[in-house]
Simulated assay, not measured.
Amino acid sequence: MLKLLHPVAGSLAFVMISTFWISTALSELFASTAVVTVVKTAIPWGFLVLIPAMIGVGISGFRLAKGRGGAMIARKRKRMPVIAANGLLILAPAALFLADKAGAGAFDTAFYTVQAVELVAGAVNICLMGLNMRDGLRLRQRRRASI
């Protein structure tokens, strides 16, 4: 079960964060403030899917790696606290702040400053999660090759 849960939850979380990032970037660059408002106020609702997916990938990853070593597992273990801290301390509060500001129509300096921080932090998480997915696929290939 863990062997299925881990890649599904990880892929779902990766797609969710990527969707948040892309929809934000496209709406900010090419759409009206009404569209930006819809995007920014919808993102916190996505937490209802993202947070359980992140919990699932974290728990399943730790259980799958229990008793195993190696450089790739060590790298994945180092990235996970950064991904989690970035999400909990920067991305989630920023998303809630931006949803509130957008809902109030307050597209001011604070909005755009936090938006810039959120885009950078989101890009970092996308990159780190992508690296974890790459290493996970490599671990799976090695495991299949040794069977």
Results as ranks from 00 to 15, higher is better:
Leu2Phe: 14
Lys3Thr: 14
Leu5Phe: 10
Leu5Tyr: 07
Pro7Asp: 10
Pro7Thr: 05
Pro7Glu: 08
Val8Asp: 08
Ser11Ala: 13
Ser11Leu: 15
Ser11Trp: 03
Ala13Val: 10
Phe14Met: 14
Ser18Pro: 01
Thr19Ile: 05
Phe20Leu: 06
Trp21Lys: 00
Ile22Phe: 13
Ile22Thr: 04
Thr24Asp: 06
Thr24Ser: 10
Ser27Ala: 15
Leu29Glu: 06
Leu29Pro: 03
Phe30Pro: 06
Ala31Gln: 08
Ser32Thr: 15
Thr33Pro: 11
Ala34Phe: 01
Val35Ile: 14
Val36Thr: 12
Thr37Ala: 01
Thr37Phe: 00
Val39Leu: 02
Lys40Glu: 03
Ile43Ser: 00
Ile43Tyr: 03
Pro44Tyr: 04
Trp45Glu: 02
Phe47Leu: 15
Leu48Asp: 01
Leu50Met: 15
Ala53Val: 10
Met54Arg: 04
Gly56Leu: 07
Gly56Lys: 06
Gly56Tyr: 05
Gly58Lys: 04
Gly58Asn: 08
Ile59Thr: 09
Ser60Tyr: 10
Gly61Tyr: 04
Leu64Pro: 04
Ala65Arg: 04
Lys66Leu: 02
Gly67Trp: 01
Gly69Asp: 11
Gly69Leu: 00
Gly70Thr: 12
Gly70Tyr: 13
Gly70Gln: 12
Ala71Val: 11
Ala71Gln: 11
Met72Trp: 15
Ala74Ser: 12
Arg75Ala: 15
Lys76Arg: 10
Arg77Pro: 03
Arg79Gly: 03
Met80Cys: 02
Pro81Ala: 12
Val82Ile: 15
Val82Leu: 14
Ile83Ser: 02
Ile83Asp: 07
Ile83Gly: 00
Ile83Cys: 02
Ala85Glu: 05
Asn86Ile: 03
Gly87Cys: 09
Leu89Phe: 11
Leu89Gln: 06
Ile90Arg: 07
Leu91Lys: 04
Pro93Asn: 09
Ala94Asn: 06
Phe97Glu: 08
Lys101Asn: 02
Ala102Pro: 11
Ala102Thr: 00
Ala102Trp: 00
Gly103Phe: 01
Gly105Met: 01
Gly105Asn: 09
Ala110Pro: 06
Ala110Leu: 10
Tyr112Lys: 04
Thr113Gly: 03
Val114Asn: 09
Gln115Cys: 07
Gln115Ser: 12
Ala116Gln: 07
Ala116Thr: 10
Glu118Trp: 12
Glu118His: 12
Leu119Phe: 10
Leu119Cys: 03
Gly122Asp: 09
Asn125Leu: 07
Asn125Glu: 12
Cys127Lys: 07
Cys127Asn: 11
Leu128Ala: 06
Gly130Tyr: 13
Asn132Leu: 01
Met133His: 13
Asp135Arg: 09
Asp135Tyr: 06
Gly136Asp: 03
Gly136Val: 05
Leu137Lys: 04
Arg138Cys: 01
Leu139Met: 15
Leu139Lys: 07
Arg140Lys: 14
Arg142Trp: 01
Ser146Cys: 05
Ser146Gly: 06
